[in-house]
């Protein structure tokens, strides 16, 4: 049977401008590969070294399991406290940063900018800053995680509140409720599932971050890993890496389970 009309082309013909954009993007990617020096021969040359280090890593050395466990606990506690502080501070900041809830556009833009600053500066940089400000140890790491959490949760809390149904808010406004009452009675309960979800993701992220922060002296298990690598104790490093992997895995599983239970 002959079709009545021919089907359209499988792909749209790009405009000259779009075509130019594609070419430039491709050229930039090729140039970037060239600049960072990724090459197959170099990878092949490195393979024996990788094999040697992996060979020295196994079997992992369990002799320092006690100190590793304590450092791991400290790491997780840094993540928990940093996330808890960050979540609590994020809520009022998110209300001020939300387009529909902020009392004034200037306050909204100022708060958004502050949250963006916390998010865009990497947690390792915050950790370096706090190590100088409050000294070595878990306090610096906790404060770094707190700021990183505010940057993450502040943005997502604000967006989830903006997406809530406006009806309940209008109803409370109509009955003469205060602005604060309206936010906490109508908006926050609606956004709560999203808040919980974001907070749990934030805890997962903080757990991973807290491992790295130790590398700059901000507490946690990272410093143990750095010392083991610096002293070429690859079997001990393997034990630490396995411990970190187990911690992250447990946190991710528990947070997924909590998500399904609470939301």
């Amino acid at each position: 049977m002959t079709p009545v009309s021919a089907p359209p082309n499988r792909f749209e013909r790009p405009s000259a401008l779009t075509f130019l954009f594609y070419v430039l993007a491709l050229a930039f990617i090729v140039w970037s590969f060239n600049n960072v020096g990724v090459s197959i021969p170099r990878l092949v040359d490195g393979l024996p070294n990788i094999g040697r280090i992996l060979g020295q890593m196994f079997p992992p050395d369990p002799s320092r399991l006690g100190p590793i466990s304590l450092a791991l606990l400290e790491t997780f506690q840094m993540a928990v406290v940093g996330t808890a502080l960050g979540v609590v501070i994020s809520l009022p900041l998110a209300i001020l940063a939300s387009r529909s809830l902020s009392p004034h556009p200037i306050i909204q833009h100022a708060t958004r900018s502050l949250i963006s600053l916390f998010r865009t500066v990497p947690d390792l940089v915050w950790a370096l800053f706090f190590v100088i400000a409050v000294g070595l140890g878990p306090v610096a790491g906790t404060l770094a995680i707190m700021l990183d959490t505010i940057g993450f949760c502040g943005r997502f809390f604000a967006e989830s509140m903006e997406e809530t149904d406006k009806g309940p808010r209008e109803a409370l406004t109509a009955l003469g409720a205060s602005r604060t009452g309206t936010v906490f009675s109508a908006v926050v309960p609606q956004a709560m599932p999203s808040f919980i979800n974001t907070s749990l993701f934030s805890l997962e992220k903080a757990t991973r971050s807290s491992v790295i922060l130790g590398l700059v002296g901000a507490g946690g298990i990272g410093i143990e890993l750095k010392v083991a690598m610096d002293l070429f104790l690859y079997d001990l490093a393997a034990a630490i890496i396995i411990a970190i992997f187990l911690l992250v895995l447990v946190v991710e599983h528990v947070s997924s389970w909590l998500r399904t239970k609470i939301i």
Binding site: L172, L175, G176, A177, S178, T180, G181, S185, A186
Partner: peptide, 8 residues
């Protein structure tokens, strides 16, 4: 929530 008409 209706009580927010008279209280906060």
């Amino acid at each position: 929530h209706g009580a927010q008409a008279h209280h906060s």
